[in-house]
């Protein structure tokens, strides 16, 4: 469960977040949809306490991120963009490292690591160094890192960017499976297709504000449009910065 309330953040002269409020519930996939520069990344960074909001709060499973960052962050897994792999480590070492930094003891980390490698079917590459990996292999490694410690909430920043069809499917299947397990999944995207295909909830962002939140169907209904794409354009008044 991720809740964001009244979040404002000014970066330089730009009001990056403007009284942003939304919530992403457990057992749901929530998409943060908005054009480039809408404040999606700023919002996610604030969620991880990397940025300090001027106003409002963000809570992870009810824990205020700013007041108790370490505890709040334990409930989060991040699939970053870009991935930030360590090229000289193997996926197993990489995943194990993040598992341990997320608070797992050594042996538990190894077990969790093995489990996630199985789950993502990456045993063939698990012990090779990351240098020279394909985009799909990199994606799997980054994904494994994000979920190895089984966080209740998984945050993905532009997850499908640059992925091929197979990798996108793998990712999609995994997200659906995680949702089925009751995890809260929040991802930012500017790709309409992806959002409409996956999301139970969509938060439409523009100029730092949440313009609307609801299921794709609700949003269509509310804007009296047939497709999410049309609904979106009607909500923000333009299709600039959005990919179909």
């Amino acid at each position: 469960m991720i809740e964001v309330h009244n979040l404002s953040k000014k970066i330089a002269d730009v009001q990056a977040l403007d009284q942003l409020s939304f919530s992403a519930g457990d057992g749901k996939i929530t998409g943060l949809l908005g054009p480039n520069g809408a404040g999606k990344t700023t919002c996610l960074r604030t969620l991880f306490n990397l940025l300090d909001a001027d106003n409002g709060w963000a809570k992870v499973d009810g824990i205020n991120v700013k007041e108790n960052p370490l505890k709040a962050k334990k409930g989060l897994g991040l699939f970053p963009d870009p991935f930030g792999l360590y090229e000289r480590l193997s996926p197993r070492e990489y995943i194990q490292y993040f598992a341990e930094l997320n608070g797992l003891a050594s042996s538990a980390a190894s077990a969790a690591c093995e489990e996630v490698i199985e789950r993502l079917q990456m045993s063939d590459i698990a012990d090779r160094r990351c240098k020279g990996f394909s985009q799909g292999q990199r994606m799997k490694t980054a994904l494994a890192q994000a979920i190895v410690h089984k966080p209740q909430n998984i945050v993905l920043d532009e997850p499908t960017r640059g992925l091929d069809v197979m990798s996108t499917r793998t990712l999609r299947d995994l997200l659906l499976a995680l949702k089925a397990d009751g995890h809260c999944i929040l991802f930012s995207s500017h790709v309409m297709q992806e959002v409409s295909a996956l999301c139970d909830e969509v938060v439409v962002m523009a100029a730092g504000r949440a313009i609307a939140q609801g299921s794709p169907a609700e949003l269509c209904e509310r804007t009296e449009q047939d497709s999410l794409e049309e609904a979106f354009i009607s909500l923000i008044g333009s299709d600039e910065g959005i990919a179909a």
């Binding site: 991880f48 990397l50 370490l70 991040l78 970053p80 930030g84």
Partner: peptide, 14 residues
């Protein structure tokens, strides 16, 4: 440069 700094800081570590 490898973009792993923000990721590191996102972890629940001091």
């Amino acid at each position: 440069e490898r973009n792993s700094l923000a990721l590191m800081l996102s972890l629940p570590i001091r």
